[in-house]
């Protein structure tokens, strides 16, 4: 159960094309990442809605293929 950093970035970029993305590998095991996503797509949305956009970008992989993802969203 793991996901390459590049795959994670590509999935988010595909769903939020204009996003600025910063990913940190927290444990070096392709399973624990933190991700900061900056985009105007988040404007006017609650934190929950913003995070759901990021989770939806990962589709069913979240919680299955990817165990731990720390999410921070920034609306521009």
């Amino acid at each position: 159960m793991s996901m390459k950093l590049t795959e994670l970035e590509a999935l988010v970029k595909k769903a939020i094309p204009n996003a600025e993305i910063e990913i940190k590998d927290l444990a070096g095991d392709d399973n624990h990442y933190s991700i900061v996503v900056k985009s105007d797509t988040f404007r006017g949305k609650s934190r929950i809605e913003q995070h759901q956009i990021v989770y939806d970008a990962l589709a069913e992989k979240m919680g299955n293929k990817l165990h731990a993802l720390q999410v921070k969203t920034i609306s521009t």
């Binding site: 934190r47 929950i48 995070h51 759901q52 989770y55 990962l58 979240m62 919680g63 993802l69 720390q70 999410v71 921070k72």
Partner: peptide
């Protein structure tokens, strides 16, 4: 429609998971 655990509810309202609770 939230893929992770934990999930916090206050007065029946979904507040978020660990990231949002910590940020708040």
């Amino acid at each position: 429609n939230w893929p992770t655990i934990p999930q916090l509810y206050i007065k029946s309202e979904f507040i978020g998971g660990a990231d949002i609770v910590r940020e708040m």
